[in-house]
Design a protein around this nucleic acid. Structure first.
Length: 203
DNA sequence: CTCGAGATAGTCT
DNA sequence: GACTATCTCGAGC
């Protein structure tokens, strides 16, 4: 078949992929493909930057001290679901990890455009440099069309899913997370992971 | 390219 | 009513 769509070669990761310790999951997600279907078509990117949040002992996590609210509810359930939350005008995308009553999650902070760059660019309006399309947690959700409507969606099926990585030929670096200055000890934990030398990391 | 200033809303106590 | 992180843009390098 001559015009085989690259997307057709990508299988969703099975649900058992999400049953691994959160720090392992944060590393495993690097290189995987995040896809979102919409009326405008499918857009996708390679995950290049993640952060682990391990409540209830992690001061930087929304689920710190088992704080269970309407917003954090999905984190208390099974892994493999979508946790979206809004930050001012932006929507941030997380993958729920940890089993029931283990409210943990992995925040996706950067992706590299992989499929349908035209759609990604148009959603990002006037931004001229391609490296600014998806190099931040709020930018990538806008680029893919991820919204609060995706809260609680299971990530093994459309319209929002994650596919296995196509290559493991990269180095992973780790360091402190971003934007959590007032989180006590937790601010020093090296729970941010990214692919070395990738230009779509957020900083 | 790097830096800093200004704009932006929703959640929870 | 306190708290918060991200994005954009423009200035200086």
């Amino acid at each position: 078949m001559k015009n085989l769509n690259v997307i057709d070669n990508l299988r969703p990761l099975p649900i058992n992929f999400y049953y691994q310790p959160t720090l392992d999951l944060a590393r495993s997600l690097l290189g995987c493909i995040l896809l979102k279907d919409s009326p405008e078509g499918i857009a996708a990117g390679i995950i290049v930057e993640t952060e682990a949040y391990i409540g209830p002992g992690d001061m930087a996590a929304h689920s710190f001290q088992n704080r269970r609210t309407k917003r954090t509810e999905v984190m208390f359930g099974l892994p493999g679901y979508t946790y979206t939350y809004s930050m001012h005008t932006h929507c941030l995308f997380n993958v729920v990890s940890g089993n029931v009553n283990e409210p943990e999650a992995v925040l996706i902070r950067g992706i590299e455009p992989f499929y349908n760059e035209d759609l990604i660019a148009s959603r990002r309006d006037n931004v001229k440099k391609s490296k600014d399309w998806t190099n931040g947690p709020g930018k990538l959700t806008k680029a893919l069309g991820i919204t609060m409507n995706d809260y609680g969606h299971l990530l093994t099926k459309k319209p929002l899913w994650i596919a296995e990585k196509r290559s493991s030929n990269f180095k992973i670096e780790a360091g402190p997370r971003i934007g959590i200055e007032n989180s006590g000890e937790a601010k020093n934990y090296p729970w941010r992971f990214w692919i070395s030398d990738n230009k779509f990391i957020s900083r």
